[in-house]
Design a protein around this nucleic acid. Structure first.
Lengths: 211, 211
DNA sequence: CTTTGTGAATATTTTCACAGCT
DNA sequence: AGCTGTGAAAATATTCACAAAG
């Protein structure tokens, strides 16, 4: 099988979301054209993206919605549950912990950590906040490989080091600082300020890629 | 000037973050090599990215940190303040509203809207929550062109329509649903679940792009 | 000796356009 | 008629490699 471009993986969650919406609307099949309208992505590109993983469509008809949902979930790995840990029980951490969409997609908040003694023991969305120093043992014991980092900027690197020690594979970094980790650990930066900075460019001047 | 690729704009906030950290460490100059180590991006690509906007470096020396920060802020448009609105005063909305990093980068939460009568009038980070139906007039009056959408999925499209009516330019969509807006409105999807789905792929099998 | 800025080469991604299936 | 899957073309993006500058 040919190497799957990074961009394809980034687009799959978008397709999945569209399909879930189309499913909720009650349609049994859909087309790359429809998905293209919803996502703003060229239909040919959508077809090619999917073909990296198999021929899921029916010529002349389109894609069977439920089937394609199942396939994309399988490709992404969201067809089975995942335990995640949230580090930082502040505003952002608790907001994410109580996010309903997580469970719908098979993500279970299995541990929440915080340094602050006042927060330890408090329940957030049914999960007790644990002391930060217990992080490596707890995460190893529960085999958690995904961490959401939502601590203050000053603590970010130190906690990232703890996460590496805990053998984490993926860090969703919601802090504004760039953390340094070994190559084997995948970091994805999701700080809201960064996302705003990026969109700012569209305010002045014209957008690239608009027809 | 040549057309600036989309990817360049996505990387600039990362460079800015690195530079701010380097500045905090007290260094006066830095190099594309250093930035490359911090971001995982090829130094030649960093240099080329920057050259889209001007020659900011000194051959044999590198980049003057403070100067490059100023230039990148100028390119992104974060050298002057921006008013933003947050729609949805739930967990996520309030977390973002109280995010300190916003002000540091010149983003001011100028309005917070919610449908829930219990929340209207409550203060969040110094800003009073306003009724959703007042959104179009309020946003037009205050000339807010950036909106952060943090409402329940079922309300997302209706609120997006309101935002379009209010003449918004950029929507940072923190809901899980794909919203439909006119081409002139830039939507950036930032739902945590989507970001998790995307990173999932790195758990199984090997990452693309790793040397 | 270090590091930028860049022409040229390479690699990747996207889009077109159509054969083939329903 | 409508839509997928795909070869080929076009467009973009990335990386190499080195002249020029400090």
């Amino acid at each position: 099988m040919k190497k799957v471009p990074e961009g394809v993986i980034e687009r799959l969650p978008a397709y999945l979301n569209c399909l879930l919406q189309i499913e909720a609307e009650g349609a049994a099949t859909t087309s790359s054209k429809r998905l293209g309208q919803m996502t703003g992505i060229n239909p040919a590109e959508i077809r090619r993206d999917l073909v990296y993983f198999g021929s899921f469509g029916i010529k002349g008809v389109g894609y069977e919605v439920k089937y394609l949902i199942k396939e994309i979930k399988g490709i992404l790995g969201s067809d089975h549950p995942h335990q995640i840990a949230i580090i930082g029980a502040g505003h952002l951490g608790s907001a994410i912990a109580s996010h309903n969409g997580l469970r719908n997609h098979g993500f279970f908040v299995s541990a929440i950590f915080d340094k602050d003694a006042d927060k330890i023991g408090v329940e957030l969305g049914g999960v007790k906040v644990t002391a930060l120093k217990a992080l490596p043992q707890t995460m190893r014991k529960r085999k958690i490989s995904i961490a959401i980092l939502a601590v203050p900027p000053t603590a970010a690197q130190a906690v990232a080091d703890l996460l590496v020690e805990a053998g984490v594979s993926v860090i969703l970094n919601y802090t504004s600082v760039m953390i340094t980790v070994p190559d084997a650990v995948q970091v994805h930066n999701s700080d809201p300020v960064n996302e705003l900075l990026y969109t700012l460019h569209y305010l002045s001047g014209k957008r690239p890629g608009v027809k």
